[in-house]
Write a protein that binds this DNA or RNA. Structure first.
Lengths: 153, 153
DNA sequence: TAGCTAAATGCGAATGATTTGTATTAGCTG
DNA sequence: CAGCTAATACAAATCATTCGCATTTAGCTA
């Protein structure tokens, strides 16, 4: 009972922290934005804009608004965009501290996403997927950054 | 001189091998397909369909044909599709043997792609990018496979 | 080598996720 | 509470990619 209370308290605090971060970034606290943050806070995604729109937004809200909210929330660092190469951008809460770094394990058939917390040797990386009973396992590893030429320009 | 000849001979052989693989997969040897294979063989990509169309295809050829060729070449295992999450699919020659496994290092500004041959500990993985003078380094690591539920179905 | 047939292409239109223009609405600051 | 803007709704545009269909052609066969 006390354990549950602690968990709940921690949960509420973290959601408030997210809202404070919104204010810190000069983002107005609008209905759609709050609903998006709450949805991503309470459900582990990542989710496409359309999934967020259909599953989590109760009061009517335009899909274009969802897209614009996600852009501003991403720019503010509250939300992270994930690209799995299937034509849909997905979004999840961005946990800024490195302790929450994680990868994804996506079923190529049903598109289900599992969180992968482990982080070990790259050459053995597929075993995380196989350990979970996945077959036809492969992984995508791509680097991003600003190249020396562009830094100079 | 003899060195150069050897290199050239090897080059020709490998390109011929690719053409043989096309035939083995019951793909007709059409102009667009040959040009795409040659382009990817002579230039290290990966390239978008539009880049291939504009840069490498001399004789007139419809962009839709490029897309269709890339699909059939991918199905035949000759070409690999890469997704960097910027809204463009890119293609490169698929080297089936594991010895040619590599990753990519993409400049987020000019979209230049560098090949990353190293394959070490995941937690130190960003150092490959930093070692090349890139800043704002991040990486994308996603897993793909068929989940137990879908295997059963 | 001519002819056959399915596969491949060209061209135009469609698709679908995402973006954008613009008038209207509604946070926030004083 | 007024006023200034940012944010929203709605509709239309964008843009990579796909598709339909008529025409062409690669590769096989006689």
């Amino acid at each position: 009972m006390s354990k549950k209370a602690v968990v709940k308290e921690k949960t509420v605090k973290t959601l408030e922290t997210l809202f404070q971060e919104m204010k810190k970034n000069h983002l107005r606290m609008t209905g759609p934005r709050k609903m998006i943050i709450e949805a991503l806070f309470e459900n582990h995604g990542p989710f496409t804009a359309e999934e967020i729109h259909k599953k989590f937004i109760r009061s009517s809200c335009d899909l274009a608004t969802i897209y614009r909210c996600l852009v501003s929330l991403e720019q503010a660092g509250l939300v992270r965009k994930c690209e799995f190469g299937d034509g849909f951008a997905r979004y999840e809460l961005a946990n800024n501290d490195q302790s929450h770094h994680h990868h994804h394990l996506i079923c190529t058939e049903c598109k289900k996403v599992e969180i992968v917390e482990e982080c070990e040797i790259e050459s053995h990386i597929d075993r995380f997927a196989k350990k979970r009973g996945f077959t036809s396992v492969s992984h995508m590893l791509e680097f991003f950054g600003i190249c020396p030429d562009c830094q100079a320009a």
